[in-house]
Design a protein around this nucleic acid. Structure first.
Length: 328
DNA sequence: GGTAGACCTGGACGC
DNA sequence: GCGTCCAGGTCTACC
């Protein structure tokens, strides 16, 4: 028997806009259905895995998904309507709500997004500001490692295989489970290549508490300490560290990669070596200060959307597998 | 501190 | 169908 529960959201929240705001929404175990505009994924809860479907009913009570209008700037956020595929205990509802809140960045209220739009008004029209992430820091870190040194389609495959081969009931594997996996299994069956040992090692560090998510998520932890710590982890270099930082809500650093160079050359008209262009991009976005990554990312996102339509219309199995700009 | 080359996979290309 | 080349970020060895 399913359990229905609601999650309150900030007044400007739009599920389709704010969930489909970063590539991870296209990675397993996440599944966005563009037709029903619902997000479904398996969550590992106290009583075992449960498939949760999240929707945002229209505020006006009419049938069909909520609409986003450029003219009105925001849809007024109706509470999220969630349903599980099995009965959940009260504690599990609380647990699931917390994980969903992390994933959908419900902690960033309307005032936070307004503060960003004061710095960069270009994205005020659609109300963009929140960036989708995973329910746990562990999943964010592993997803980041699977995105290094590969084209996007390989990242899609790695996450698909990790969930199928190691995860319980299609869930993203827990740190404990992944730390017990054989590196050779990850390489052969999950196609993670040379990342195999690094992933097992990272999982072991999370499982043992050597990596403490609370310390990483704590606003009292300085940016400098956090970056130094992250960059010391296996498989995490300057790009991955900056990406994990933005996933932790620290937007001042830019994870610069070949996509950034392409953006610098084709959109911003920069010229020079890749290294020189990366420096120019850093300088270009520096005026956005603590919000630099948001501005950088939504520029890139706009480029993808101009090619492939609004992100909430992308299918995981088609557009979602080819959306890296180099594929256009 | 800076740089070259290895790491692995999948796709593109030529034969 | 097979072999070769290339792209991608991190890591290590070396200067």
């Amino acid at each position: 028997m399913p359990t229905h529960f609601a999650i309150p959201v900030p007044e400007d929240y739009s599920l389709k806009r704010d969930a489909c705001s970063y590539g991870y929404f296209l990675l397993r175990p996440n599944h966005w259905d563009p037709r029903s505009e619902r997000l479904t994924r398996v969550l590992e809860l106290e009583g075992g895995p449960a498939t949760i479907t999240i929707a945002q009913p229209r505020e006006d009570g009419k049938r069909g998904p909520a609409r986003i209008s450029k003219a009105s700037h925001f849809t007024r956020g109706a509470d999220l309507a969630c349903v599980s595929d099995r009965r959940l205990a009260r504690r599990e509802v609380t647990e699931a709500s917390g994980l969903i809140a992390r994933m959908l960045r419900l902690d960033e209220d309307a005032a936070t997004i307004r503060a960003y739009h004061r710095v960069d008004p270009r994205f005020k029209g659609l109300g963009r500001g929140r960036l989708f992430r995973s329910p746990t820091l562990f999943e964010d870190v592993i997803k980041t490692v699977t995105s290094c040194n590969v084209q996007w389609p390989s990242t899609v495959v790695m996450n698909e295989r990790l969930c199928e081969v190691v995860g319980d009931g299609g869930a993203f594997p827990s740190a404990r489970k992944l730390s017990r996996a054989r590196a050779s299994t990850l390489r052969a069956r999950c196609r993670v290549g040379y990342r195999d040992k690094r992933i097992v090692e990272l999982a072991g560090m999370f499982a043992s508490g050597e990596i403490d998510p609370h310390w990483c998520e704590d606003p009292a932890t300085s940016d400098e300490d956090l970056r130094t710590f992250l960059i010391g982890l296996p498989g995490i270099g300057p790009y991955a560290a900056a990406n994990v930082m933005q996933l932790l809500g620290r937007y001042h650093l830019l994870p610069l990669d070949t996509e950034s160079v392409r953006h610098g050359k084709t959109i911003l008209g920069m010229e020079g070596t890749d290294k020189a262009i990366m420096k120019m991009i850093d300088k270009h976005f520096a005026p956005f200060g603590a919000h630099a990554f948001r501005s950088y990312w939504f520029e890139l996102w706009e480029f993808y959307e101009n090619k492939r339509g609004p992100s909430w219309t992308w299918e995981r199995e088609t557009t979602g597998k080819t959306f890296t700009a180099s594929q256009f």
